[in-house]
């Protein structure tokens, strides 16, 4: 009885917290008479969303497409790079410093360079999203490959398994939980990349909308944009969290697999 109650509570918790925060926000704004151009209330933001719905949705769609394109590219490159690094010591030694160096560069700083090559607009947003998201995928896949037990490797090699056999039968399945875990992080980073690029160099997308709204002091609209970005981030995260649980359920050893975290 208490167990099922707890489960219910766990499911409801994210909603309760979110709604609670919104209510507190609304109360604070109304009670202290905070001006909408400093901090609009949730209801004002919602009004702005309804008012500018069409243009927000068009821009949001644009951001979504850029993000998903960059993310797809990131999956392909990250997966290949991860396999490459994880299965050869030489490649690992050679690429490691380069990758660390690359990852230390703030990607915002690369947007001007990309503009030079790709111009202003969607291609730059896609590539920025890609640049931000491929790294965690590659690192996680490589780490996953490295967790193969040496004993299992010995068993298979003494059966005559080739490197490819080892990779397909053991390495990749073993790396899958790491891969899917990294996707949740990567999709969020892809959003960040796309929006950053749009704020700097684009005539479309939520990022551009925010810059426009900011220059016109339409603060509720800005917050509506932020809310939409947050919502898209949460939805994509949940999608990949669900996929992760479906595909790599064995990695959580079947404990409470069906219960945990309904709200993401």
């Amino acid at each position: 009885m208490t167990a099922s109650k707890r489960r219910w509570l766990e499911r409801l918790a994210p909603w309760i917290v979110t709604i609670g925060l919104l209510v507190i926000w609304q109360v604070v704004v109304v009670a202290f008479r905070i001006e909408p151009f400093i901090m609009p209330s949730p209801s004002a933001i919602f009004d702005a969303f309804v008012q500018y719905r069409d243009s927000i949705l068009i821009h949001a769609w644009q951001t979504m497409v850029s993000t998903l394109l960059g993310f797809s590219l990131g999956i392909v490159v990250g997966l290949l790079l991860g396999i490459f690094i994880g299965s050869s010591r030489l490649v690992y030694a050679g690429l490691y410093p380069v990758l660390i160096g690359f990852n230390s560069v703030p990607k915002v700083a690369m947007v001007p360079v990309l503009v030079l090559w790709l111009g202003i607009g969607q291609p730059t947003a896609v590539v920025t999203a890609f640049l931000l998201c491929f790294f965690p995928i590659a690192v996680n896949v490589a780490t996953g490959l490295a967790t193969v037990e040496p004993e299992l490797e010995d068993v298979l090699r003494s059966l005559g398994a080739s490197k490819t056999d080892l990779l397909i039968k053991v390495g990749l399945p073993r790396a899958m939980p790491y891969f899917f875990a990294s996707l949740k992080v990567a999709i969020t980073l892809a959003f960040v990349g796309a929006v950053i690029s749009e704020t700097l160099a684009s005539n479309d997308g939520i990022g551009y909308l925010m810059i426009q709204a900011s220059s016109q002091f339409r603060v509720p609209l800005m917050f509506a944009g932020l809310a939409v970005i947050a919502a898209m981030g949460v939805v994509t995260y949940v999608v990949f969290a669900v996929i992760e649980r479906r595909v790599t359920g064995w990695a959580v050893r079947g404990q409470n697999m069906s219960i945990s975290g309904g709200g993401g």
Binding site: E151, D154, R157, S158, L159, G160, K169, T248, W250, A251
Partner: peptide, 27 residues
């Protein structure tokens, strides 16, 4: 590496994503 030796260690090192039968049939 010899190509057909059977080996077993202290750690069972079965593949957690495969059911038992398919684990046994891996070789």
């Amino acid at each position: 590496p010899l190509k057909i030796v059977g080996m077993a260690f202290q750690n069972p090192s079965l593949l957690p994503w495969r059911p038992l039968l398919s684990n046994v049939m891996l070789p």
